[in-house]
């Protein structure tokens, strides 16, 4: 059977082998002509070309879009209007009342996203930390349980959204449990508070396994003899946690915190499928606002969407720089 697998593998690789052989002679000529430095360019070219076209050019264009008006997507149909889009996003008559803002949907999205980020990241970090601490104990079937918590991470956001929409609907599982506990059944996603809570809970459910793994890796890197020494001294467990575990976990903990923040700010897919931003606009978050203004609404305004995405991007850049710094520090510690 192993022989068969190998044969099949070879057969699948065959077309690629052919291509690889065919490109060798011209590349040899190129190599003789330009040296190994020229070959480095050849190896980098495809990836950099794709980066350039699909990341760098859009990055620059984003600023152009944010400073032009109109509803067209082609740049030559878009008149230059300077910073007007930003002004429109940020202009309010009375900054204490969202409704007086010119683009009140944007402020709704900002407020909702802020609330979401605060609660979701807190919940995420706490739940992942508890799970990682538990998985770090000497328990039977640790590999199994590690996999259990990781399972939802692999599911697609659309599937996650649909699974939970199905559970939270009127004839759903949650109402079955509620009725059995003697509570009134609810249409959970039609309620502003429950829908907001659902987006937090569901996105935590879907991603906590990922953060648990990073924290667990950090916990396992803490030298055992520290704990043994603590035990010799009969240090109380709470003190061990605050004095040994948390400080030594620090860098990983910081990485998890910032990664969770970055992803939380951009939340879209699961929530869009779960609540569609509703009821009303109570779970309308920033990425959905950008998507709807840029693509989905009748009065679409690509310039406004670009301006909003640049403002969100600025927040993300700050967070990512923070993350890179922290993870470098984490690596430095590990090396020492």
């Amino acid at each position: 059977m192993a022989g068969l697998g190998e044969t099949l593998g070879r057969a699948a690789a065959w077309p690629f082998t052919l291509v690889a052989r065919a490109v060798d002679p011209p590349l040899r000529v190129w190599q003789r002509w330009t040296g190994t430095g020229g070959m480095a360019a050849v190896f980098l070219a495809p990836n950099l070309a794709i980066f350039g076209v699909f990341v760098l050019i859009p990055l620059v264009l984003n600023f152009v879009y944010s400073m032009t008006g109109g509803t067209g997507i082609l740049l030559d149909q878009r008149p230059f209007i300077g910073m007007e889009q930003y002004g429109r996003l940020l202009e309010c008559e009375d900054y204490t009342r969202r409704i007086t803002c010119r683009e009140d949907q944007f402020w709704t999205a900002v407020t909702n996203t802020t609330g979401f980020v605060i609660f979701q990241v807190t919940l995420m970090v706490v739940v992942s930390l508890i799970t990682a601490l538990i998985l770090n104990r000497n328990i039977r079937g640790r590999g199994f349980f590690r996999a259990v918590f990781f399972f939802p991470v692999l599911l697609s956001p659309v599937v996650v959204g649909l699974i939970w929409r199905w559970i939270l609907q009127r004839e759903g599982l949650l109402n079955l449990i509620a009725v059995n506990l003697g509570l009134e059944p609810e249409i959970w996603l039609n309620d502003r508070f429950y829908a907001f809570a659902a987006t937090i809970g569901v996105s935590t459910w879907a991603h906590m396994g990922f953060y648990t793994l990073i924290l667990l890796a950090g916990l396992q890197a803490i030298p055992r003899d520290l704990y043994e020494a603590a035990e010799m001294d009969a240090t109380p467990p709470a003190r061990v946690f605050w004095r040994i575990t948390l400080p030594l976990l620090g860098p990983n903990f910081a990485v998890v915190l910032v990664l969770a923040l970055i992803r939380s700010v951009q939340i879209f897919d699961e929530v869009y499928v779960l609540t569609g931003g509703g009821p009303g606009t109570s779970t309308l978050y920033l990425t959905q606002y950008i998507y709807e203004v840029g693509f989905a609404s009748i009065l679409r305004n690509p310039g406004l969407a670009a301006a909003a995405s640049i403002l969100m991007g600025a927040v993300l850049v700050v967070l990512t720089l923070l993350q890179l710094r922290l993870s470098r520090r984490a690596e430095g510690r590990r090396a020492r």
Binding site: L48, L59, L61, I73, I290, T320
Partner: peptide, 28 residues
């Protein structure tokens, strides 16, 4: 080489949701 590495690091900061509109126009 370091420049290229830096460029690739920098793209980590540009998630899809930030460049939706211009990416759409490039693909268009």
């Amino acid at each position: 080489r370091d420049g290229v590495m830096l460029l690739i690091v920098a793209t980590l900061m540009v998630p899809l949701s930030v460049i939706l509109v211009p990416l759409y126009s490039v693909v268009n």
